[in-house]
Design a protein around this nucleic acid. Structure first.
Lengths: 186, 186
DNA sequence: ACTCATATACCGAACGATCGGTACAAAAAC
DNA sequence: GTTTTTGTACCGATCGTTCGGTATATGAGT
């Protein structure tokens, strides 16, 4: 079993418990790997495991979301639709929490991972803005809409989790494409 | 010194480090109280300290926000403006993170505090919706706008913290009153 | 006025448990 | 037979919590 085998499980665990809340004992139990084996695959310990999880999430953005937005010049509405579908699936209809948000809210992990998290958000925002600019929107407004999309997704995940009711996330995901495309002329 | 003296410091600490990330050693150092003294004021230990912090935040909602919305029947725009001002101040222009979000994202604390957090969000949403219904808005749409306000605030806090740039939160707070009042006839 | 009792606020030291991490040899895999 | 992977035993540090006890102040009993 290669190191990559266990990364999805790590993502799930860090999402669920946070960085400080997730112990090596839990990881060992959930993966079925002894501590020695964990340190064989991740010599850097817990920090490296979290980094591997975070890197995998960032690669999801790179490989699943960015291509959709890169080829969106002609049909922004359809692209945002596809982006939202993929995002909805990634967050399991809103039941999963976002690793970025979890890590960013903990001081300790924030210091370790801020660069990667900040980069991911910026990249996603910029890609959305680029689609909108190509579609003829003002650059400042386009960037704001990219930010608004991130705000809507993150806020909806928090609210849905708080209420134990995923309808708000579903509604946000459904409305997001139109919201991004409003007043667009193409 | 009474127990209430230390609650604001507890709020700050739990916001900063999360539930699992905040140790009694840190609390002891930050408050100047020995660990044993902390147990004198909070016999229930760390859980009771977090509960006291959460209760205080919920009381902020009750005493600072709810009255604004309760007396808003005639002038919704001004009320939402005041609500946003107070919220902006509470979150220190976006530099503070939200205790609700911090606690809700950690499995352990979520189980302990879900009821209080869920109630707080519901209460705030319902109060906003009530203002909008009184102003003539459809009930379903009013409730959605209440949810959208929570989503915007929470999402903006996450994004601003992730980017180390509080402009998105500032923009959201500034735009929120108009967003809530759009298509209103009064 | 002078004890004595009670209550409040505080503290250092230590508890058992668990934390993240390591050393090393057995055992699988090739 | 060598490399990769793992189980076990172990480490010092820190976790949340508890114990035993001190200092001060208030108030009752006499």
């Amino acid at each position: 079993m290669s190191r990559q085998t266990y990364v999805p499980k790590l993502i799930q665990l860090f999402r669920q418990f946070g960085y400080e809340g997730l112990s090596l004992a839990k990881i060992s139990q959930a993966t079925g790997l002894g501590k020695a084996s964990l340190y064989h695959h991740f010599p850097g310990g817990k920090a490296e495991m979290a980094e591997a999880a975070l890197t995998q999430v960032n690669q999801w953005l790179e490989t699943m979301i960015m291509p959709i937005l890169a080829d969106a010049a002609s049909q922004p509405m359809e692209a945002f639709q596809a982006m939202c579908d993929e995002t909805n699936q990634f967050f399991n209809e809103g039941e999963n929490s976002c690793l970025w948000a979890v890590l960013v809210l903990e001081q300790a992990s924030n210091e370790l991972f801020h660069a990667q998290i900040s980069h991911a958000f910026s990249q996603w925002i910029e890609a959305i803005a680029q689609v909108l600019v190509t579609a003829g929107l003002d650059e400042t407004l386009a960037k704001q809409r990219g930010e608004d999309a991130m705000i809507a997704i993150q806020g909806a995940l928090i609210l849905s989790r708080s209420l134990h009711n995923f309808a708000p996330f579903q509604r946000v995901i459904k409305q997001l494409p139109q919201q991004l495309c409003q007043d667009l002329e193409t």
